[in-house]
Design a protein around this nucleic acid. Structure first.
Lengths: 163, 163
DNA sequence: GCAAGATAGTTTGTCATCAAAATATTTGTC
DNA sequence: GACAAATATTTTGATGACAAACTATCTTGC
């Protein structure tokens, strides 16, 4: 039978019409757009990494280690802005796959530091190539507004206390 | 690259110095700032909701229902931009707590729709008050750039294909 | 009218995130 | 020197996200 009669059924408009689907209540809400944009961006990066059989979640850690050389999990957590407990599993994975080495701190039995292995450095470069491509795509989309947007985002982070 | 001495130890600068801790490699990367800002924003909202003993995850669903009246889980998923499977648990929780009602579709045994109960409407208003406060805080931080930023974020979502 | 395929919803498995509790070790106080 | 407090890491448990596989039902093609 015809379903047309009974149900309103929400004639959901396709996506090509910009913000066709955004609920009225959210249209002017920064937090909403922030969330949606960040998820779209992450998904795009994730898809690109997956296609190359790489773990998107490794990128930031490997890159920070490439820049800082050697860090404890705690310092790494502060630099990348994640809770320490979040890193445990990832570091274990990276270690198992030989991408990082752990070095016990001889002066403190509780603590160790991690650094990239040669393999890890290679992996970082491969992920960086993908990330760079992704960010160029974002740059194209954002165009001249990039600096303003970055400044605003940084302001948000600072004002809300990094948390 | 002399890491020779005992304590490299990263003298991590405190947060009050804007972007003191941002790794060089990310400083000009939009995706990074997007992620960090979104997480800070979500954390702030989450904390405010928690303080009032409310679930932050309920807000978007309740608000969409308040606006659209009655939706199937699939339509709800399209409107809020989450995968259908993501909604299952939340809808169950909302239903158990009496905030939404499920109505079987008499024309399609597979399908049902959900709508707010009076309790749900009250909860939506309570959460909305918190969300509104949060967004005003964001507005203050962002100031005159708000429209530009929202336009840019929407552009990102559209260009990256929502997904 | 029936088999094949599409669609609605749920389940399961993976991952990332946080916070709070648990462990182990170091530091500081008396 | 012993005991309390702080610190480094891991564990556990809750959320929320996705994708892929699964069940049930509806629609289509022939």
């Amino acid at each position: 039978m015809a379903k047309a009669s009974a149900k309103p059924k929400l004639d959901l408009v396709k996506r090509d019409d910009s913000n066709a689907l955004i609920p009225e209540a959210f249209r002017n809400v920064l937090g909403y757009h922030l969330r949606v944009a960040q998820e779209a961006s992450f998904q795009a990066f994730s898809a690109a990494a997956d296609k190359a059989d790489l773990k998107p979640g490794w990128y930031s850690i490997l890159t920070i280690l490439a820049e800082y050389g050697e860090l404890t999990p705690s310092d790494l957590s502060r630099v990348c802005g994640r809770d320490r407990s979040t890193l445990t599993a990832t570091l274990k994975g990276l270690s198992i796959r030989g991408l990082i080495e752990r070095h016990q701190n001889p002066e403190d039995q509780r603590s160790y530091s991690v650094r990239l292995t040669e393999e890890g450095r290679k992996m970082q470069r491969r992920l960086h190539a993908i990330a760079h491509q992704h960010d160029q795509r974002l740059d194209e989309i954002v165009g001249a507004d990039k600096d303003v947007v970055i400044a605003v985002l940084a302001r948000i982070v600072n004002a809300l206390g990094t948390s």
